[in-house]
């Protein structure tokens, strides 16, 4: 049981980290670009919000499998194909949780507006400098919300994991899958511990996010 919890936390932390690094520039681009096709990209990023996780998992299984160019590339990179491995789970989770990070961060960037960046430019800050010294600090509430939502959403993922991760203890058997297993084998007591823990976790996440978000926003108002 502890193994599943640890694995889940590890997966969620790593996914959140990757998402912040990849999702923040993407959110910046979506917030500032004037390209007509940016909403097409925005929609692709948002797809996991609507798609059944099994659909996503199915396509990921194919895309990362040994018969696709992407899968072969990954195999060459990691020495083995990604499905049914921890690395595969990370890749899937990043895609699956992407909209939960990109959307709040993009909103935060859009709320900043043009002015602070213009001010930074008149104060000799290059666009990159202004991004780090003005845009990121001002978007902090959005970044915090995005990170928490990305983390929490990854913790709760089930369908995608089942499709591309299978159920390998210590490798891909995360919390939600463990609960499913316990119920199937009628170990209701263990299922109760994990499920109850998740309820408490979800409650705390939402409460803490709301409170810190308010506080950060007030400080920047």
């Amino acid at each position: 049981m502890a193994e599943a919890v640890l694995l889940t936390v590890e997966l969620a932390l790593l996914t959140t980290l990757v998402l912040l690094v990849v999702g923040t520039p993407l959110a910046w681009w979506l917030a500032r670009s004037r390209a007509w096709w940016k909403e097409v990209v925005g929609t692709v990023v948002a797809l996991p919000l609507v798609l059944p996780p099994t659909v996503l998992g199915f396509y990921l299984l194919i895309a990362l499998g040994p018969n696709s160019p992407l899968g072969r590339f990954a195999a060459a990179l990691f020495g083995h194909t990604l499905p049914f491995t921890f690395a595969g789970l990370v890749v899937a989770s990043v895609i699956y949780s992407m909209p939960f990070v990109v959307q709040p961060v993009r909103n935060a960037f859009e709320a900043i507006g043009e002015r602070p960046l213009e001010v930074a430019a008149t104060l000799r800050a290059s666009p990159l400098d202004a991004f780090f010294s003005v845009a990121l600090p001002l978007a902090r509430p959005g970044l915090v919300t995005g990170a928490v939502l990305g983390f929490a959403h990854t913790v709760g993922e089930f369908g995608v994991v089942l499709m591309i991760g299978g159920n390998i203890p210590g490798e891909t058997k995360v919390l939600s899958v463990a609960i499913y297993d316990y119920v199937e084998t009628l170990e209701w007591g263990k299922a109760h511990v994990l499920a109850g823990g998740m309820v408490v976790f979800a409650f705390l996440v939402i409460l803490v996010t709301t409170v810190t978000d308010r506080r950060l926003r007030r400080r920047l108002a």
Partner: peptide, 16 residues
């Protein structure tokens, strides 16, 4: 950002 100007905007626009 390469021009040596001082620009004062209509609203003070201080960094919050």
């Amino acid at each position: 950002h390469k021009r040596r100007i001082g620009y004062v905007f209509q609203e003070a626009s201080l960094f919050a």
